[in-house]
Simulated assay, not measured.
Amino acid sequence: MTTYIADRIAINPGICNGRPIVRGMRITVQTVLEFLFAGTSREELLQQYPMLESEDIDACQQFAIELMDKRYVIQEFKAAA
């Protein structure tokens, strides 16, 4: 079952091992962000993935921003003796 966690971002345990995906397709948010981080332009990305829309790229970036807005706690684990 696909659950939309944002307007264009979804999670489905049966698609891409449950990673966040774009509009139910087999394109992960991580893939889009990695291309952008590597210097791929928005136009190039849209050419390489013609099923993507410009708004999908915006949604991926917004999703990443919202993840960084969460509070994270690092816990120390003691090794067994």
Rank of each mutant, 00 (worst) to 15 (best):
I65Q: 08
F35Y: 15
T31V: 07
T40N: 01
L52F: 05
I15V: 14
N17L: 12
M51N: 08
R19I: 06
I5H: 03
I9S: 00
P13W: 05
C60T: 06
I27V: 15
V73T: 15
Q30L: 14
M68A: 14
A81Y: 02
I65L: 07
E34D: 12
N12Y: 00
V73K: 07
V22S: 08
D58F: 08
K78Q: 10
E53K: 15
G18P: 09
G39V: 00
E53M: 14
T2S: 07
D69M: 09
Y4N: 06
L46R: 00
R23A: 08
C60L: 04
V22A: 08
E34F: 07
K78A: 14
E53D: 13
L46K: 04
C16M: 11
I65F: 05
T40H: 02
T28F: 04
Q47R: 11
M25K: 13
D7H: 04
K70V: 14
S41F: 01
Y49Q: 07
A59V: 07
A10Y: 01
A10F: 02
G39W: 02
M1R: 09
D56S: 07
L33F: 03
I5G: 06
D69P: 01
V32F: 00
Q47M: 03
I65Y: 01
I11T: 11
I11C: 10
S54Q: 13
E55P: 00
Q30T: 15
G24W: 10
S41T: 15
E76Q: 12
Q48A: 11
P20S: 03
F77T: 11
D58R: 09
A81S: 08
G24H: 10
T40L: 01
M1V: 09
I21W: 01
D56K: 04
G14Y: 09
L46D: 04
P13L: 08
M68V: 10
M1Y: 05
V22M: 09
G24K: 13
F35H: 15
M25G: 06
E55I: 13
E43L: 00
M25W: 08
V73N: 03
L36R: 14
L67G: 15
K78C: 12
F63D: 03
R26L: 07
D7P: 05
D7N: 09
L46W: 04
A64G: 03
L46H: 05
E34C: 07
L52D: 05
R71H: 12
D56H: 06
R8C: 03
I27D: 01
F77V: 15
F63P: 03
A38L: 13
L33C: 07
I9K: 01
N12V: 02
E55F: 00
I15N: 10
G14N: 11
C60M: 07
G39S: 02
I11A: 02
E43D: 10
V29Y: 06
D56M: 02
S41Y: 00
E76V: 12
R42V: 01
R26N: 12
C60G: 04
T3Q: 10
K70M: 12
A10I: 00
E66K: 15
M1T: 06
L52P: 00
Y4W: 11
Q48H: 11
A79M: 10
P13Y: 07
Y49S: 05
G14F: 12
